[in-house]
Design a binder for these strands. Sequence first.
DNA 1: AGACACAGGTTTTTT
DNA 2: ACCTGTGTCT
Length: 677
Amino acid sequence: MELTSLNPEQRQAVRTVDGPLLILAGAGTGKTRVITGRVAYMISRGIRPGNILAVTFTNKAAREMQDRVKSLVPKRRLIDESGQAERPTICTFHSLCVRILRRHITKLGYKKNFVIYDAAEQLGVVRRILSQVSIGSRKPDPQAVLSLISRWRNTNSDELVAEDQELAGLAKRLVTTYQQTLKSSNAVDFDDLILLVLRLFADCPEALKECRERYRYIMVDEYQDTNHSQFQLVHGLAKAHRNFCVVGDDDQSIYGWRGAEVANLLDLEKHFPDVQVIRLEQNYRSTNTILEAANAVIKNNTQRREKKLWSDKGDGEPITLWEFRDEEEEARALVEEIQFNRSIKKVRWREQAILFRTNQQSRPLETALRKAEIRYNLVGGQSFFDRREIRDFVSYLKLFLNPDDDTGLLRVANVPARGLGNTTMEKLLALSQERGCSVFGVMRDEAALGQFKPRTVESILDFVELVESVNERLNRPVPVHPAAPLKAWCTGWLEEVGLFREMRRMEKDAESAENRVRNIVDLLDSMDPDFCPADRPVPERLHRYLEHISLDRERDDDEEAGDVVTLITVHSCKGLEFPHVFIAGVEDGLIPHARSKVEGTVDEERRLFYVAITRAQRTLTMSHCGSRRKFGELIPCQPSPFLKEIPEELIVHGDDAEPVSEEEERDFFSRLKASLE
DNA sequence: AGACACAGGTTTTTT
DNA sequence: ACCTGTGTCT
């Protein structure tokens, strides 16, 4: 195993295989190299690949590590004595839990065809619960209740920290109902995936023992982002053998608002008093000017593990700070600068990114980019799987696999209209709650349908017949079309249900209808490829497919291949880097966000600013406006107080004349000439 | 059932 | 300004 390409701290981190280890990996310090190097080193020292577990938060990170490990480890090392392939487990928290639950979930009283609810489906459950529960005078926001439910389920404290204690109390009271509702639908949400594994370990010592014996060397990436349940999960696995290595950066903890507990990293000694701490401080990404600014900002946070980033890249360019009149002028100027970089400095589009705190800031930027005819990629935004037709289609899939899935059933029962309107479905839902069974359970029980008109009963029974016959065809042992069994099966019921007909009927113009149809057809073509061994029965293949799209909604914005400018929020830029970074709207009220002052989370906002700064490799440009349109109103703006934390000598102000070298000037004129010819 | 109007609320997001 | 969810009317 080649270690000479690593710096001394990295090498030390790679070699420290046994016992608890905390690797404090500042931004851009080669964290992924260390984790993958560590995996490769362990294997080279004779540790069986199957005993290694590396957990990440995102599929992207997991894939990246898998690829790197593959290139670092000789193939023969990934084969055990009996010639079987043996790989290290490198996956997300959630897919690890799914693997475990796939084997054991029946022990927890779920059927093995359970479905995974995404955020929208969770929200549906909460809405239904809230509509039944009467609370005081005001109507609670389902989204807020859902986040509080999630926070409460994943916390270890007796108090739910929230500004709105009344709402927090409601959320606490609704947790049981919420969990029961999901369970009776034979559905789990993302929190359940972790929590059910914890329960499995508590209830079923053999399962815990099995996992402990398998995963003898554990690594956790982005450890500052773990919540309490995730900590319990890995701690539960690791506390026997104590080969527990966590990698993270407390300064980049920016997900506290969704339950991440940076205390897991800060207080690691509580659980492992003898933990070794290795700091990675040499940064391979940015110039020292950028790093000095980042260091100067972050040192204003208390409650952190001291770190100081440095690099051998020299000072580079000073940081540019611009002030503009409003967000439209800001957008125009930034776009002009990007265009200038491109045409004069030969900087490619993809080497430039504009970062912002809130999504709504992207609007004027997009307008300006389109006007200049510059292609861009807006990261985030509406996912493919959030489109209505895709949601409907996937709901049908989930329902056919698991007819107890109330959320799916309620979504598609009347799509297309088949006489099962709101009133009927509400009555059925109420009945199901009375009897403690699923809605489908009520529908198929003819005796329970006394209160409905004969015509409604007929509609209900037709629907039951549909679900049962499609379900039966799914379970039929010999598929019609062995090469593409899922697609063939779907084509059958799509025709029968008439979903395409319905979409063509509902849509105003033919083009958007065909668009929606095409989206589903595209999905059909992705269903059979092999993330599941081809010899498995069709229902299992469907189950795996649904699992796959729930856990890995592969970003269809994979336009990274193209040469385009990136527009991205500060949150989603963590882990990325760009040669030229522009941070727009560095204003009081945006960074730090106005709400953070009320909520007392200004430190997290400072970390957010720190993350933004440390994305830049060569140049960093920041801007703020004198006023900005917010909620339709023009609001005066002050520069961010964080700007004062950056030493003045690192900054030049945008209105100062920009020094241009003679060479650049010659180049400029020759290009200008060329463009005129 | 579907079209339209009105109220209310707008930080960040992965699995 | 703008989007979403809900209520009312045909």
